[in-house]
Write a protein that binds this DNA or RNA. Structure first.
Length: 197
DNA sequence: GGCCAGGTGTAAA
DNA sequence: TTTACACATGGC
């Protein structure tokens, strides 16, 4: 059996289902993907809570907020100046392309998202996978550590890591969803300090 | 008080 | 193509 599939089974048995993404609506997933860029999820969560309290976690509302007001609400997530701009960009796109995006091919959606300033590969793939249920494997810092730790891949480009998993697993949205979340769970517990286990 | 967190864009070597 | 740096808050 493929090593990547074996590792998945091990993680699943150890940590169980992760129930990602921790957001209730498609739009919340998208907003969360921006807010958590290089930021602890706990901080992104605070910003989302603020947006909810302000009844602004809605594309039509958020797009009309004053920039200063939006920045104030998302302040806990850090990098709030650029994130405010990014939230408006993705929201503007979302308002006009939501329907089209749902039926788009996974790679076409990925390209579309990558065309938005402030949306890089991880954010685009997170939105495609967790927001639109497209089978795209998300690669992040934990994934690279995980691969290095298990001797799957020492060093490579983003797509090298992505294809490593997509080729081994096949285009399976549910598995991609769970696997990425499990890698994060693994990383948070013992990914950083020790190299054992 | 320093390091890090579910990155990205830009500029210079 | 690779490397360096700015962007910012909150938890430990």
């Amino acid at each position: 059996m493929d090593k990547i599939l074996n590792l998945y089974d091990g993680l699943y048995r150890k940590y169980g289902p992760q129930h990602w993404w921790p957001g209730e609506t498609q739009y919340e997933v998208i907003i969360g993907a921006i807010l958590t860029q290089n930021t602890a999820w706990s901080n992104a969560e605070k910003a989302i809570a603020n947006l909810k309290s302000a009844k602004a976690l809605d594309p039509a509302i958020l797009i009309g907020l004053e920039d200063a007001r939006l920045k104030e609400l998302i302040r806990p997530s850090g990098f709030y100046n650029q994130k405010a701009e990014r939230l408006k960009s993705i929201t503007s796109w979302y308002l006009y392309n939501r329907k089209k995006a749902i039926s788009m091919d996974r790679m076409a959606l990925r390209q579309e998202l990558l065309g938005i300033k402030g949306i890089g590969r991880e954010t685009a793939d997170s939105i495609a996978l967790y927001g639109f249920k497209k089978p795209i494997f998300v690669v992040d810092a934990y994934t690279r550590r995980f691969c290095r730790h298990h001797g799957l891949l020492e060093k490579g480009e983003y797509d090298d890591y992505r294809l490593l998993f997509e080729d081994a697993i096949g285009l399976k949205t549910k598995i991609f969803n769970e696997y990425h979340a499990l890698i994060v769970a693994w990383g948070k517990l013992h990914g950083k300090a020790t190299t054992t286990n």
